[in-house]
């Protein structure tokens, strides 16, 4: 049954690429920031419904939480807008490779220093090899 879980995770990633390609097209007609807005607006409605029916957590924690931990939404806006802007110029493949590299390298840095409340995990030899291979990949794909 583990096989199915890997398949689900693969599908999840595929959904992100489809999203990027489709939003790029929508961005050409209604505008890029407007496309981001649509995504977050629609997402709020979908998640609002999910929360009403299946939410088990504590939404009131929002008011007690440290303010920096509320910045996720704004950061997500930068991500989505960069995809909508970039796909029509360089294609989905390069866009995804660049996003993934930014994401993986930054995660290593965040974990290395234990920033933003994450567990401290030192950068090791393997991770440096990983970054080198990623950069080679980006040069080749471009």
């Amino acid at each position: 049954m583990r096989f199915i879980s890997y398949l689900l995770a693969l599908l999840a990633g595929a959904a992100l690429s489809f999203e990027g390609a489709i939003y790029a097209e929508l961005g050409k007609t209604i505008g890029q920031i407007e496309t981001s807005f649509y995504n977050f607006f629609m997402g709020s409605i979908i998640l609002g419904l999910l929360w009403l029916f299946f939410g088990k957590g504590k939404i009131s924690y929002t008011l007690e939480a440290p303010k920096w931990s509320l910045l996720g939404g704004v950061l997500g806006v930068v991500y989505l807008t960069s995809i909508v802007v970039s796909v029509p110029f360089v294609g989905v493949g390069i866009t995804m490779v660049a996003v993934i590299i930014g994401q993986l390298v930054m995660s290593m840095v965040i974990e290395h220093f234990g920033w933003l409340g994450s567990k401290k995990i030192k950068i090791n030899k393997e991770k440096i090899f990983a970054v080198i291979s990623m950069i080679i990949s980006l040069i080749l794909i471009n």
Binding site: L75, V78, I83, A98, V99, G102, M106, S107
Partner: peptide, 16 residues
């Protein structure tokens, strides 16, 4: 620009 998008995404997942 897209690299920056990836960077913010990673910061987002730590914060979230």
């Amino acid at each position: 620009f897209t690299l920056i998008g990836g960077i913010t995404l990673s910061a987002q997942s730590s914060i979230n």
